[in-house]
Nucleic acid binder design. Structure first.
Lengths: 231, 231, 231, 231
DNA sequence: TTGTAATCGAGACGGTACGTCATGTCTTGCG
DNA sequence: CGCAAGACATGACGTACCGTCTCGATTACAA
């Protein structure tokens, strides 16, 4: 999802990188977050890695705190101490994976040709959503977000937000280049392009292919109404 | 979701709650479905009603088979005998609610004015998605679908399918009336209109208002590209 | 303790025998005791046996419900369902061991010679208290009794009571035979003979030997005051 | 228990609560006892006081090191550093309470009338064992002693020993005064008088009253056998 | 009309996981 | 260095549910 953009962005080379800073738990902590200075960084990482791996292997329904703790070689309490819910752990796992999500903000490629750029980005998105390494974990995250408003807010702000901003920027650039109508609502435009794709993936309402995203892009750009002249 | 359409369709007056026909479990049963003639219809109904009610009250995460059985005044085994999973129970609960989903297929209103009709339908959809009676249960269903391919297939076929067909029909009608371009891919068109709305709701990525759906409709109809003439 | 008497009583041959009837838990149950008809007798026995064995092996301090359940091949809930406390399990384990404690009541040997009979009985008692198979379990029981009044009452009534009655009977018989003063308080007499022995054992206040019990018996019979004649 | 004697002894006026000398842990320490010069006396006292208080309040079963540390305003490590076990803390708490147990040794009152003196002492003992301030703590100590041989030895030597010696002395004095037979085994005599009382208390095998102790004294002095002449 | 066989409510069972508490060890920073 | 504070791995607590099972008691079909 958010990964996609990052991958395509020219300035970032690799996915592998060091988590810059992010430490604390994602949502408002149940108890006033402990000192956090004493926090064991190795344990934190082991937990998030274990969570992500288990998500791939056993799926969301069978993911247990006990399992994560065991896999991470960590006491359960260490998880409960720092995260308020299973969802928060999953969220942080994604946050870590996206290299902190907090480095320089992501950018979409801008070759000057909007349609080509969108096509490339959406092809990559489909590839990622389809990748077995990410499919189950991302469904898990989507599930938690769907059922936990607090987590949804955190997601909105920390992970989805920057990504959406990048998309909006690319469209704004196209607008300046005269490739988009001036009165187009960019927020709606973004959701109109990515919404159908995400929906197909999450609800499995149809095959999720590169060809499908092409149709979405064409349709979105042209609109539904008949076009006056040719084309 | 699917309810919406039904409500607006002129020919259906009330939300009659009697399940017409559907009996068996949703997905392929673990054991070759029992005789089914002996089945206690009252228990079946009590279970589905209890499931739906509990979904409203406690939410997806805390829904348990034991809880459903207790609320329905039914032995646990009666649930395990007829449904293969919790998700299947939830699914059937929706199926029952939508009066079997199996009466005459749903239709969208067709006043001749596509934009007006879409506006009305999407306003109703937003009202339903926002209704506290349906919000949590529908999120639960969406969650199960997202994580269980088999259930997703059943949903696609039995609940979402007919609804999507109705939407497609309405667009086809508009196409015939010259309100839609002839080369528009109707499937994509449907997903481009409803996708953003469902996504906003499920992921809480922004406020879900009637005003928002209006913007979606306008944008979808006009498309993103600059239009040659004024408009 | 109670075992002792049984062993020496002529009419009982072996320690091994079938638990006659006793089923329910020892103390007033937290929840109104479940049906008890559906109760799995095999599990019940496995639990009590496991509890007793673990008591020998790991001692009271390290005895855990989890350990008992694991050793017995039983779910924890099965223990919590039928016993209100760890102490109650231990108690029932002893009850089972003493072959129900509920068959015909125990009797002390009565050869006509009180001193000889007491000597034999106390020697056996010392042997039992010293036996590594019984030492730790009995200390555990004593510990639980000391700290749980309810359990103490159950012990008093079901295990210690009959034993004490047998001792009292033997002394009454001696009284009738003119070997005991007529005005002797039999309850006090019993406690004066067995009390010092139990105390030595429980508090390890001195070596617990046959020789010691002989001195107790002599002293108790003669009393502390100087005897008028030579003796 | 041991307190009793002290209280009745004429030469001691008050229960001065200052620990005279005792410093180190009770039993052989796990690590070679630390410097002990650096030791914080205030912490030590706070710990023992907290332990005793908690024993009263929550009882033996729920006494935790964490609880003691919290109540005493002390780090857990400070407890682990100086005491090898929970039992040792309890033991030291009693030691402190009995003013070090190390001042001049305790004495029993000696009015010349053995029976009267024993009666007075045992009445006081009963009062103390019955006192809610001491009941639970003393049961805790008894429990630890029963299950920990090392602790039992320490108890025997440091707390019970001097007390038993005082009792023995009183009986020896009576012996010299011709109130006790010359061949009476004083150790056994002491245990025959105090054993039944302690047993009743610890096992709750019957009501623990002044009247009961009177019967014990009478019976012990007279013995069980019929007395030749009148009385 | 009467078996007879399956369903039903109930709930015990062996389990897994929950979220909490305590253990005993450790590390950090103050005095 | 002792100390308070408290994180940590460990492991037990007592509870909630899982999915399977067994128990009578209905209940409806076939004889």
């Amino acid at each position: 999802m958010w990964e996609t953009v990052r991958e395509l962005a020219p300035q970032r080379k690799t996915r592998r990188s060091v988590l810059t800073g992010n430490v604390g738990p994602v949502t408002t902590p149940h108890r006033p977050t402990p000192s956090a200075t004493r926090r064991n960084e190795a344990s934190r990482r082991a937990i998030l890695a274990a969570a992500f791996d288990l998500l791939q292997e056993v799926g969301y329904a069978k993911l247990s705190i006990e399992g994560i703790a065991a896999r991470a070689g960590v006491g359960k309490q260490t998880i409960y101490r720092w995260w308020p819910s299973k969802g928060a752990v999953i969220f942080d796992a994604f946050l870590m994976l996206s290299e902190g999500g907090e480095g320089e903000p992501p950018t979409l490629p801008d070759s000057g040709d909007l349609e080509a750029d969108l096509t490339a980005v959406l092809h990559a998105t489909v590839a990622e959503l389809t990748d077995p390494r990410y499919d189950r974990p991302m469904r898990a995250l989507a599930t938690e977000i769907a059922n936990d408003p607090e987590l949804a807010a955190a997601y909105s702000q920390r992970l989805d937000g920057p990504m959406k901003e990048a998309k909006r920027q690319r469209l704004a650039s196209a607008q300046r280049a005269g490739q988009l109508a001036e009165d187009v609502d960019l927020d709606v435009a973004v959701e109109m392009i990515w919404g159908p794709v995400l929906n197909r993936w999450l609800q499995r309402s149809g095959p999720l292919t590169a060809e499908y995203t092409d149709r979405v892009i064409t349709t979105a750009l042209n609109g539904l109404r008949p076009r006056p002249s040719g084309r």
